[in-house]
Amino acid sequence: MSQDFEAIRYKLVEQQIRPWKVDDLDVLGTLHQIPRENFVSADQKVLAFIDTKLPLPGAKNPCQVMLEPKMEARLLQALKPKKTEKALEVGAGSGYMAALLAAHAKSVTSVDIDPEMVTLAKSNLARAYISNVTVEVGDAYTGWGDQSYDIICVSGGMPSLYEGLKQQLAIGGRLVAFIGEAPVMNAVLVTRLNATNFTENILFETLVPNLTSAKVKTASFSF
């Protein structure tokens, strides 16, 4: 039996996402425009609209997941990417978060340590006809390349935020990351005010799997 995904998407936005302090009309519109169900496996399409983490296709362990839809929406709203801005995502996953960023930013570079996740993200983004995202294999845990970014989205947990990532923010740039240890982490928004000063604001409490990186001993999971 075919599913009415537009009706299900409407309920997701109105009953799960909007009540979770997501009221930016551009963000809500993007959630309607980019089909989340196309970034999961065929047997998970209906599950893409449920408020839960989903295992990624080809995941090697239970911690390679897609974040809850309301959480992705809150991150996008906090980052407020603009059409003139460059974004970096640490942890490509399915490519969905990169797709959300790409709808607002000039360009997105998404980096994942797992080549299979890079292949998955590239495939999903290509099928969605999203052309302003570059997906690369690598470890961006402490930064990526030598350029600055207006937006940095860390799509996984970190015990602490590495200075290298903060320093890659352009003046006025914004970064979101999940910082801390189980049982509670904080989703944190970092804004660079000038060459030496940053502000940090806690968006919400949560718990997400840690990113894998050889650069940190306490990170044991990947997604």
Rank of each mutant, 00 (worst) to 15 (best):
K45E: 11
P81N: 02
K215T: 13
K11A: 15
A121F: 05
I179P: 02
V13G: 05
K11G: 13
E37S: 09
A7W: 13
Y149C: 00
N210F: 13
V190N: 04
Q168M: 07
L76E: 04
V13R: 06
Q64H: 03
L169F: 01
A7S: 13
S123N: 14
A126T: 14
A195T: 13
D114F: 09
S160K: 12
G58Y: 07
T30K: 06
G58Q: 08
M117E: 09
E72Q: 13
M97Q: 14
I152P: 00
M117S: 12
L203D: 01
G29Y: 06
L189R: 05
S110K: 02
P57N: 11
N132V: 02
V90T: 01
A99Q: 04
G91M: 00
Y10D: 15
V188M: 05
V46N: 12
M1P: 14
F198R: 11
T206K: 07
L76R: 00
L125N: 05
V184Y: 11
F49I: 06
Y162P: 12
A140V: 01
K80T: 10
T199S: 09
L125C: 08
L88H: 01
T191C: 08
F49H: 10
Q44H: 11
L165I: 03
A170K: 14
I50F: 14
A105C: 00
Y141W: 07
A87R: 00
N124W: 07
V188I: 08
N186E: 10
E72V: 10
K122L: 12
Q167S: 14
L100S: 02
K80G: 08
I202D: 07
A177D: 08
L120K: 07
E136P: 10
M158P: 10
D112L: 01
E14P: 09
Q3S: 15
V216L: 14
L79I: 01
E72A: 12
K217N: 15
V27R: 08
I179Y: 02
I171W: 06
W144S: 03
R18N: 04
E136H: 11
A214S: 15
Y96T: 04
I17R: 03
S220Q: 15
V133F: 06
K21L: 11
F221P: 11
